[in-house]
Design a protein around this nucleic acid. Structure first.
Lengths: 146, 146
DNA sequence: CTAGACTCTCCCCCACAATGGAGAGTCGAT
DNA sequence: ATCGACTCTCCATTGTGGGGGAGAGTCTAG
């Protein structure tokens, strides 16, 4: 007996495995990237077909969404992998993700500080810039002295 | 006739060439770095000794100071090389350096903008963070939705 | 003459996140 | 049977600024 109109999510036992090209199209990533992620352990395949083709589960799509999202937030693949490891251990990764994101804010803040400092130095240097200075020994550009 | 006590800078004709190790010690850079810069064309040697050793002129020290300074200001070696090329053509490089530094300020500004934008997104995300959310389908972390 | 310090070239390696391509194998349809 | 689309592994490359080390040659003091 076959329930017509039954949604795919209800037929959990019949998980249809995807080959890498399908997953690439559905996720918007390239085949190369998916293989790369699998090599890194970010994206486990459920197995191989008889011909040796990687087979991916439906959940890979959520996983790739997760990876994509954290990447745009500036986390490295290694940090993302740590979060995924928590998830794969059956725990809720939200706490770990939160900590990673807080660390990321810290990194951003110090980067901004450095950039502001550098900008200030550049501004100061350009403020007193003389486009045609007197030659001063063998110095290549006299404007550059601290 | 040899003037005793005459400073080295006055005996310009007797430019004493340095081998790479001496230049490294005097400039505070490594031998590896100096060879690298010479390969790139940033730091021309005046020639080779009979044994094939690179020989550098006294001016290399000013040149390395220049490179070091522009590097700390965030210019790439390629940009620095463009400035040095102007200098080596006998022109005053100050105008070119000025333009490079202005471009650098522009880059810094857009980097800061990007970082601020990212920080805002992270802050917003963490503001509504729930460390123990309800499970929502197969989504790995419900907090991450845009 | 020999030991030690110095230098040479050449090649490989790091981070980071992929990308490109060669050459071979697999799958589905005709 | 064969064609095209797909996939596999393996290796190299991208950009940036160097670092490490092998193996060989050179220079200098004792």
């Amino acid at each position: 007996m076959q329930a017509i109109g039954m949604t795919a999510s209800l037929t959990a036992s019949t998980t249809v495995a995807m080959k890498i090209g399908v997953l690439a199209r559905r996720s918007g990533m390239t085949v190369k990237t998916l293989r790369y992620y699998e090599d890194l352990g970010l994206l486990p395949a459920i197995g191989r077909s008889e011909g040796g083709y990687r087979l991916f589960a439906e959940e890979s799509l959520q996983r790739l969404e997760f990876i994509r999202r954290l990447k745009t937030l500036g986390l490295s693949l290694e940090e993302i992998q740590r979060c995924l490891a928590v998830h794969d251990a059956g725990e809720l990764p939200c706490g770990d993700i939160q900590r990673q994101l807080e660390r990321q804010i810290g990194r951003i803040d110090s980067q901004i500080q450095e950039l502001r400092q550098l900008r200030k130095e550049l501004q100061g240097l350009l403020a007193g810039w003389q486009s045609d200075p007197a030659k001063d020994g063998d110095v290549i550009c006299p404007n550059l002295r601290v």
